[in-house]
Amino acid sequence: MKDYIGAPLLAALQQAFPSAEYDSEAAQPAVFVPAAELTALLTFLRDDGRFGFARLENLTAVDYKTYFEMVYHLFAWGANTWITVKVKLDHEAPSVPSVTGVFPGAAFEEREVYDLMGIEFSGHPDLRRILLAEDFTGHPLRKDYRQAAPPKVPRLRREGGRVYAAD
């Protein structure tokens, strides 16, 4: 990531959203925000003239075993600056508001995260599994996912032109 949003703008962001947190020591700090304020923050970043983050380039989630982290990479074309917004989610029942109201192009990526990571997106217009079959159980990108054993196929035994099931 080339040009990360500068410290003055990050301070301005925190003034508008006091609950947003970031590590002021880091070179490219990610802005952590509570789930309830996510859509308001993204709308602010998109519409405020000082920021102008009109493109949501990437949306994904990471499983850190004790919690989930939603990751949003926003890009301001023109100023060519980046910002990373993150939301920490509870591992038991992860749920986050859908950002499709702010960035409609996030619809498929949110479905993908729902499918593979098992995070609920409240307010998503069409939240279904996207890559896996609808009757699939589990979420493969979670760290505690274990693949089910392959089905047992009975072995056959041949004797004198006849076939028996070998138990």
């Binding site: 380039e57 990437n58 994904t60 990471v62 990751v71 990479h73 619809a107 498929f108 990108l141």
Partner: peptide, 27 residues
């Protein structure tokens, strides 16, 4: 085509996410 890689300092990536253009264009 974007790659989001999280490293935990070991020899294997902790998480790789691929932003695939075809997938998003399908919308």
């Amino acid at each position: 085509l974007g790659f989001y890689i999280v490293s935990d300092g070991t020899a294997k990536p902790y998480r790789v996410h691929i932003r695939r253009p075809s997938f998003i264009n399908m919308q």
